[in-house]
Design a protein around this nucleic acid. Structure first.
Lengths: 107, 107
DNA sequence: TAGATATATTCGTATAAGCGAATAAGTGGA
DNA sequence: TCCACTTATTCGCTTATACGAATATATCTA
């Protein structure tokens, strides 16, 4: 894969990176990876206020990273693509290796 | 890989996601992926002021995502781990698929 | 249609983060 | 040591973004 141009970079940043740059969004994504949940369930689980969760979900939905499905008065959210989690897990592995490398370099 | 706990999530966010959440940092990472460069070369290439580039590089260095190597008065920066680019490319592919899926859904 | 439940939105505020100009600090050569 | 070059840091400012309280909207049931 080649180096991205300015336009693609802009899109990449706005639609994915920025969402992943927010820790609460990451929490929400992992919670939805475990299982689809409705808004209040997420708010209770993550101890975030309902409006905040709803706003984050709106953004994630606009970015097409999550999908909303109304079921009665509730709205069930679920991940649109599990690769988001794969990306995050890749970063976690990277983080671990970096720490390990640092520890080795210091010893 | 299991679901990350709060502490790991905090680290992940602070050390990697936040850096990737800045579009100029992404530009810098890709530029260093092409080849190691010194600060002014990056500033010229990306049309960002020297102090701004330097500040971003400092952050990336603290996160151990880039490595600095002094060569005379200049400092050559290079990527610490190419997997950062792999992660970004994975996101790009994800972005493309999302767009494609949207286009298909609308037709 | 009234009420209960769940979600979305608006609003004002507070916090965070990036920016360039100016300046300081480090490095090597004369 | 002085100078030229490169990089790092400080400073004040601006912009962007997240937040909760309050409120509006949507859905279902009776």
């Amino acid at each position: 894969m080649s180096i991205p141009g300015t336009d693609e970079l802009q899109l990449l940043h706005e639609q994915i990176c920025q969402a992943i740059g927010d820790i609460k969004c990451i929490q929400i994504l992992y919670a939805l990876y475990e299982q689809p949940r409705q808004v209040t369930a997420l708010a209770d689980l993550l101890e975030i206020s309902q409006p905040t969760v709803s706003r984050h979900l709106t953004v994630l939905r606009e970015r097409a990273l999550v999908i909303a499905e109304r079921r009665g008065p509730a709205v069930i959210y679920h991940l649109a693509d599990a690769r988001v989690i794969a990306v995050l897990n890749m970063m976690r592995q990277l983080l671990r290796d970096i720490h390990e490398r640092r520890a080795t370099a210091l010893s």
